[in-house]
Design a protein around this nucleic acid. Structure first.
Length: 510
RNA sequence: GGCGCUAUGGUGCAACGGUUAGCACGUGGCCCUUUCAAGGCCAAAAUGCGGGUUCGAUUCCCGCUAGCGCUACCA
């Protein structure tokens, strides 16, 4: 894929205007700006991750800014969930969270200033005239019949007489007969004729009882990005079409635009934009399902970014050291859950055991199976047991469900396991004898257990596999488990013998 | 409809004018085996279409097609 040289954007570029926050000048400054209208979805999470990686790589600053200027849809209670999601992902921020809703005066002042300088004008049109939602039914047919839709350029622009009872909005006066350009760090040069850009609203017309209107997104982002001295705007490519408007605003405010870097969108399996009907789309749901953050982060980083070669496992430090905007793809990518699961199984197996233990502890605590001594006196045992179990796990909850018998004496026999391995009627007697033999073992170890079982199998004239599989069901209740003798060692002699006796009774009762 | 962006197997990426188009997930098969995973090996599977430019196009240019985004007094 050809990359033109125009993509080489100076990363040291920065705004130099003063700001209201008293932040020292200099260095890369990026921001993640979620709006609390929903949970943290995977697309937003990846944008946050890319911002974080870029900031860390450049030794810069990551700012968290909550864009809650949508009075109707904003849900303050969702903010904490978004922050939790970011923390889980390992994305930490250096400043904020700032809330745009607390900066409205700054935004309004900017609009007034633009108005005073002539870069904006008062628009007395009733909101419904241009609002798409309620006024016009936007069916497919209606769209086609509508023909070429004109860019908003109302009479107010040239100062038509104002109706007395209508409170005005402030619109930006797009300079005509010009072209607006910017150089996207991912998508390359981009330009659009100003005729195509509407005179967008900066300040909404005031509601009934209010003295002044609310700023719109376009105004707020630019004002805040200038004020916070953002040097690189890394965000979803759905914002590409908005960017020329913002570039125009930067000019009107006499501020240097930041570097824009748009990252491709994440799509569902049907190649449409990820939404609720695609099932799990919030990072919280993946955390709750028992994915490891390390795996999720690795997977997410490689969706729409590549280090340039075929590397597929990157630790956080490698992600940071290898991340660059040049490696970001321009193609929208499909969220592939199967691959995420693969990453998770890989991390469950490869993570240093000490890094995995806390996650397993958390899972056992959730399941009310946790014993504090496993983190203290019996830590060694816990570590060994988890290590034995992990090659067969896919998600964290496997430790408390499938592997329950390793952490509790209260477990059920899986009916399918019984069906498969407890068929032979002689098993009751044989397991009883196995318990006898194991109970007499002076040294409880792998080879001792192995020897007892194989001797018994030979004496009974059956294949060792018959006893092995039956005994596995007896002591852990599952058809699938780690190798039997290692399992026995970890569970201990007393427990194994008593579980065999219990199985003998269960078998007899059938 | 208008404007914009994108186009390598089913999926995610690599190949930056010259490769038998590479890797990984997934899929199928084989090996290993004490169940099931893991692991190893093998296989099927891609440059959307049409024109240029060039000694040579996956790669550069144009058109078409398709997909996506924007087209709000949402963000």
């Amino acid at each position: 894929m050809g990359r033109f040289s125009s993509r080489e954007i100076p990363t040291e570029r920065m705004a130099t205007t003063s700001n209201a926050l008293g932040i020292p000048l200099g260095g890369v400054r990026v921001r993640f700006a979620p709006s609390p209208t929903g949970y943290l979805h995977v697309g937003g999470a990846r944008t946050a991750l890319f911002n974080w990686l870029f900031a860390r790589r450049q030794g810069g600053t990551l700012i968290l800014r909550v864009e809650d200027t949508d009075l109707e849809r904003n849900r303050p209670e969702l903010v904490e969930g978004i922050l939790d999601g970011l923390r889980w992902l390992g994305v930490d921020w250096d400043e904020g969270p700032y809330f745009q809703s607390q900066r409205l005066d700054l935004h309004r002042a900017a609009a007034e200033k633009l108005l005073a300088s002539g870069a904006a004008y008062l628009c007395y049109c009733p909101p419904e005239k241009y609002a798409g939602g309620d006024a016009v039914e936007e069916t497919e047919d209606a769209k086609k019949e509508a023909g070429p839709r004109r860019v908003t350029r109302c009479a107010c622009r040239t100062g038509k007489p104002a109706p007395s009872n209508q409170k005005p909005a402030i619109r930006f006066r797009v300079p005509l007969d010009a072209t607006t350009r910017f150089n996207d760090a991912v998508f390359g040069p981009h330009e659009v004729a100003n005729e195509e850009i509407e005179d967008f609203v900066l300040l909404r017309s005031p509601k009934e009882d209010q003295g002044h209107g609310a700023p719109t997104y376009q105004l707020s982002v630019v004002v805040d990005d200038i004020d916070m001295r953002i040097t690189h705007v890394i965000r979803g490519s759905d914002h590409i079409s908005n960017t020329p408007k913002q570039v125009l605003l930067y000019r009107a405010m006499r501020a240097a635009p930041p570097v824009f870097a748009h990252v491709p969108l994440i799509l569902g399996a049907d190649r449409t934009r990820l939404s609720k009907r695609h099932g799990a789309t919030s990072v919280g749901s993946y955390r709750d399902e028992g994915f490891l953050p390390e795996a999720f982060r690795n997977f997410l980083a490689l969706l729409g970014w590549s280090p340039g070669d075929d590397t597929e496992f990157l630790r956080t430090s490698e992600l940071v050291s290898r991340f660059s905007l040049e490696g970001v793809s321009r193609n929208n990518g499909v969220f592939d859950r199967a691959k995420l699961e693969w990453y998770n199984t890989q991390y469950l197996q490869k993570l240093p055991i000490d890094d995995l233990l806390p996650a397993v502890q958390g899972e056992l605590e959730r399941a009310k199976l946790w014993q504090p001594e496993w983190a203290a006196a019996k830590r060694e045992w816990f570590s060994k047991t988890v290590d034995l179990l992990r090659p067969r796990t896919r998600l964290l909850p496997d430790f408390s469900t499938w592997a329950r018998a390793f952490f509790s004496d209260s477990f059920d026999y899986d009916p399918r396991a019984c069906e498969k391995f407890w068929k032979d009627e002689r098993l009751g007697g044989m397991l009883d004898k196995l318990a006898d033999g194991l109970a007499l073992l002076p040294d409880w170890n792998h080879d001792g257990c192995d020897h007892v079982l194989r001797e018994l199998a030979a004496a009974e004239g059956v294949k060792a596999g018959l006893l092995i599989n039956a005994a596995r069901v007896a002591i852990v209740g599952q058809a699938v488990a780690p190798p039997l003798f290692e399992t026995m060692v970890v569970l201990g002699q007393e427990r194994v013998v008593s579980r065999l006796r219990r199985a003998v009774k269960a078998l007899a009762a059938r």
